[in-house]
């Protein structure tokens, strides 16, 4: 509940840049900034460390160069030297001019591809990756500053309000979690039903349990605390027959549980509780 996010949204890159500078000089710690295009000077304003990806590319290029030299030397000089048009076939250095094109191409190949792969891995970009921009407009024309850690909300608001902002969103974390649970839970069916424990007590009675099933994957059962003979149970009505001496009391308990199942399912669907928490809710009395 306490975990709140503040999203300060701007509609212009210059407004964003001066806001970032203002917020940072006022001691606000900025978690992230989402923009639709590279804003010139933003990395300096945020004090981002310069990226070292160009250095990585240089190293990858060196790896490509070495690989190419080793490969060609092995193939053309060591493993199977041939006389091709009288060119020197037993010396790498003397034959080098003819090898330059491939050595160059492989250097570029390694540097280019490995650098892009490094970029994708470091910025976690890959197919099926879910986008993480908080509002979709940040790929269009909105610029968003995300603030996740602050002490005094009022003070933060007053600082943000000094900037030329477009909108401020306060995201309560709980709600955010519920929202994401909702998406997951909506897609999975939950069924709840009564079953008996397979083990019988010495007198022939057994524990009445509730079985929770989600989709095809997960299932678990919990004891209701009711112990009866199976012959008193009516599975069509999900209640105890009137032949049981304490049927009124037990059925009252069961009615309570059944209503909890209905409301629990609803709560699960809305993402308020998870599947694993469902039994606590249903059997909590």
């Amino acid at each position: 509940m306490l975990n709140k996010h503040v999203h300060a949204i701007y509609d212009d890159d210059d407004k964003l840049l001066s806001a970032v500078k203002h917020l940072r000089s006022s001691g606000v710690s900025i978690k992230d900034v989402f923009t639709p295009f590279p804003v010139h000077g933003l990395d300096h304003a945020l004090d981002l460390k310069p990226t070292r990806i160009a250095i990585a590319a240089f190293i990858y290029g060196c790896i490509g160069l070495t690989t190419a030299i080793l490969m060609i030397n092995y193939i053309m000089i060591v493993d199977w030297p041939q006389n091709i048009g009288g060119k020197p076939s037993f010396s790498f250095m003397e034959n080098l001019p003819a090898f330059v094109p491939v050595i160059f191409e492989l250097t570029v190949f390694f540097a280019g591809h490995l650098m892009v792969i490094t970029f994708y891995v470091r910025s976690s970009l890959w197919p099926f990756k879910k986008a993480e921009n908080p509002i979709p407009e940040t790929t269009d024309d909105k610029f968003l500053i995300q603030i996740t850690s602050f002490k005094d909300q009022k003070k933060l608001m007053s600082i943000i309000k000094q900037t030329d902002y477009h909108n401020i969103d306060i995201i309560e974390h709980q709600a955010a979690v519920a929202e994401s649970n909702k998406l997951v839970n909506e897609s999975s069916q939950v069924s709840v039903g009564f079953v008996f424990h397979s083990r019988k007590y010495s007198n022939g009675s057994s524990n009445l349990r509730i079985q929770f099933t989600k989709g095809r994957g997960s299932q678990y059962a919990k004891n209701t605390g009711i112990r009866i003979f199976r012959k008193y149970w009516s599975s069509s009505k999900n209640s105890v027959s009137s032949k049981h001496p304490e049927h009124e009391l037990i059925n009252k308990k069961l009615e309570n549980i059944k209503s909890k199942i209905v409301s629990g399912k609803e709560k699960f669907k809305n993402g308020v509780i998870s599947f694993e928490q469902l039994h606590n809710y249903v059997l909590d009395n």
Binding site: F34, T35, P38, I53, A111, M115, L125, E132, N133
Partner: peptide, 19 residues
């Protein structure tokens, strides 16, 4: 690829484009 447009992503993006 789940592009989100973070400041750091853009910094790398520009460097990668240049290299």
């Amino acid at each position: 690829f789940g592009w989100s447009g973070r400041a750091k992503d853009w910094q790398r993006f520009e460097e990668v484009s240049l290299v």
